[in-house]
Design a protein around this nucleic acid. Structure first.
Lengths: 215, 215
DNA sequence: CCTTCCAACCGTGTTTTCACCCTTTTTTAA
DNA sequence: TTAAAAAAGGGTGAAAACACGGTTGGAAGG
């Protein structure tokens, strides 16, 4: 009987999920509202087999938390649970050490299948995940830049990206970030290059899809 | 024992929610994936007391479905269930006839309180909703335009808004919509006016927050 | 019938955004 | 410790976005 921990900031979903996975024959060790709370509640003498991990959370998100688990408790298997099926999130989550990825609009049967697969085979790659992986690999070949989908953004760039999702002009953003407008130009151009975009709207959509800003 | 129907496209959440509300002493009549499915499943001889209604759904969203219920079965009480706490959604949902509005990250206790309130008093206005309503009223006084938050957009404007959430230039959008770039200018200016915005990024953020485009 | 309203369209001018090419300073890594 | 990379700042010009003030033609209502 696999022991499971739920990490998600939507407590209605989390509670419901809790009864669901228990009815499917699992034990829920505890629940946490976000990554930070999860770390606090984690008991070294009673570790879970599986963590059902949301991605977008306040305080400490799914990427960070999964990464932490990868280095500190690699034996704990993470099943990512997300609202969205965008490629970058999937790839990034797998990069951080997740063993599977399912959407919140999956059927309960798929959740069960995923948990079983994690217990028995150690991983669960749904058609969705396989498809996205395949697509990502194809794109890698296209532009010879395999890192494309998982470009790390610097703190300043992330900060700039957040400010871009507003009606501020670049000059105003420069003021808020205490740098010259030219520097902002630099951040923007760097992001255009990295993310293969060409307009500010593109930046905004990227930031939202990847949870850099919260809508 | 109040009978309840769940309408939400995230079946994991829906299933979990189902066991949760049953454990709280309610009957779940049925579940539906979206508004359209809900209408199909609705049995005139066995109507629910309460509908737990998600807002963002494919096919037919929470606004439309609630509106339909308001005209066809006003005795059925709708409790809106949303990810986001943005004012326009709340106001619009109440306008459509919802008797309450709770967030998906509420505690189960709040869900129970809301359902009880709907049964006993016919409505549930949480602090969140009251606060937003108050704020909306204050803003009404500010600009003398009470309709501000619930401006109806024309089909063409909505269409334009969707296209705006891309890297297309206005000229390219004009081509796609088979009108002159000047007309697009007009749509944009009209939306700026209606929504109190001044940049394209503002439009994009509005479209996303109000579910006009799906991320 | 006339007026009002609205959608579509037009012109002009300013501001913002984007592209491209550049230097200096600081940090990182071989 | 020296080479390379990253971060910051810069200039110019073209393209896109925005502001404002118009025109036209058709539908709705007094």
């Amino acid at each position: 009987m696999p022991s499971i921990v739920l990490v998600d900031d939507h407590s209605l979903l989390r509670n419901g999920l809790s009864s669901l996975v228990e009815s499917q024959g699992n034990t829920v060790l505890f629940e946490a509202d976000n990554g930070k709370e999860f770390l606090e509640k984690l008991d070294k003498n009673n570790l879970p087999d599986i963590v059902l991990m949301d991605i977008n959370m306040p305080e400490m998100d799914g990427f960070q938390t999964t990464q932490w688990l990868k280095t500190n408790h690699p034996e704990i298997k993470v099943l990512a649970l997300s609202m969205y099926d965008n490629e970058t999130s999937i790839i990034r989550m797998l990069k951080c050490g997740a063993r599977g990825y399912i959407l919140k609009d999956s059927e309960p049967a798929e959740l069960k299948a995923a948990i079983d697969a994690l217990v028995n085979q150690g991983f669960y790659y749904s058609d969705l995940v396989s498809g996205k992986l395949m697509h990502a690999i194809n794109k890698m070949d296209d532009d010879g830049d395999g890192l494309k989908t998982l470009v790390p953004l610097s703190d300043r760039e992330t900060d700039f990206l957040k400010h871009s999702c507003s009606e501020l002009t670049y000059k105003e953003i420069a003021d808020k970030m205490f740098v010259s407008p030219r520097t902002i130009d630099g951040y923007r151009d760097a992001l255009f290059e990295k993310l293969h975009l060409k307009t500010r709207v593109g930046l905004v959509m990227y930031a939202i899809k990847n949870g850099i800003v919260n809508v």
